[in-house]
Nucleic acid binder design. Structure first.
Lengths: 210, 210
DNA sequence: TCAAATAGTGAATCATTATTCATTTCTTGT
DNA sequence: ACAAGAAATGAATAATGATTCACTATTTGA
């Protein structure tokens, strides 16, 4: 004699939640966390503003989830590249290339993940994200040191330098100002830029001229 | 038969302006542009809120000036280090050390200058700032290439990697979260960190193991 | 001391957004 | 078809902070 949550409703709610997440993701990918508005996301997802708050405690919570999601994708790709065949330098180079190319293809999101200032809860996710990268690269560098293809060094510190060198190389030329004033289809040739960055990174790592 | 701006007044106004600039600078150095409030700055400077607007068109304009000021200091120091004796690698290393050490001593301001998102007018200043660095380092690298102590490469791109590697190395460990939870007197020993970063950078540049 | 002109003031205004909550609409089992 | 819940709504609220502007105070030269 009353309403009882049924499978159908569970699914419908899950779909709404998914739609909200997806639209929030798009908003962030388009112009960063700072300019993503709750009302805009709601409109995009075809729900009322208040509905967002039935699925998430707050904007921060929603954004933390978006961040986690975006992050996971990137980290997975890098981990994948790192787990292929070859010695550590080869695998590291492949991973760095993956990292750089993906960031170049989605510069706004890349910037948001790397450098945009965010609320505490989101910043917490970022810490985990940096950690994840640092650990992945650090592990590969350490393996390289053991293998002997990379000279002894502070693996964690070098890992940080790698991320920094790449990030700066992307954040600069692909900052909003640069990105906006560009033709629609993003089919630039990234090869030279990426190669140039990678040479610097690999030399920094190995101390050997490429 | 009327008020006419006199030397005395000119000086007094200049002093007030100077006080505003100085307090704004302190606020930004303490917690970044984003959390620097016009009202706080006014209170600190001992003037009314409205007075700020007799000296500056807007908050953006004030901040642009602060940015320019802070930037000039840094660029000058680096330029100074680059203009000493020695071959290009020696001079570059000295300049990078200067850059890193100064940033480590003022991590919040360094972060604001390098990575904090800011309003358009301030962002414009940042462009000039990046440009100034890029040009300084690029020039030194090009000289090194001519001298023969640095192998041929895209000098501008390498310059970007240098800035990125250093910046990331600092932004991470010295982000607000890290910085806040530290004992008062900032007399840490930066040597190992800086040396580690510099090795990576110089190797990236020269492709030669240090 | 006076009048003209400028400088300084800070409470009020305006703009922007996240969040709430009273109300409406939908679901469910009988 | 009904009543009990649950979900959805979105206009109203609240909080924040830059900016304004009507007013007061100060300075100046006569």
């Amino acid at each position: 004699m009353a309403y009882r949550e049924t499978e159908k409703m569970r699914i419908r709610k899950a779909e709404a939640r998914q739609r909200i997440v997806s639209c929030a993701y798009q908003c962030v990918a388009k112009s960063g966390f700072h300019s993503a508005r709750v009302t805009t996301i709601a409109a995009m997802a075809g729900v009322a503003t208040g509905t967002i708050y039935r699925h998430f405690e707050s904007k921060e919570d929603l954004f933390a989830e978006i961040f986690r999601l975006a992050t996971q994708r990137e980290v997975d790709k890098v981990a994948e590249a790192l787990s292929t065949q070859g010695d550590a330098t080869v695998r590291l180079e492949a991973a760095l290339r993956q990292f750089a190319e993906r960031a170049l293809r989605g510069p706004v999101m890349a910037w948001s993940l790397i450098a945009e200032p965010v609320d505490p809860k989101v910043e917490e996710e970022r810490l985990a994200y940096r950690q994840a990268y640092a650990e992945l690269f650090e592990k590969a560098i350490s393996e390289g040191i053991e293998e002997g293809c990379i000279p002894d060094q502070d693996a964690r510190q070098s890992s940080t330098c790698l991320v920094g060198a790449i990030a700066e190389s992307l954040v600069g030329p692909l900052s909003p100002a640069q990105t906006n004033s560009r033709a629609e289809p993003r089919n630039d040739n990234y090869e030279p830029l990426v190669n140039s960055i990678l040479r610097f990174c690999m030399q920094g790592l190995t101390g050997t001229r490429r």
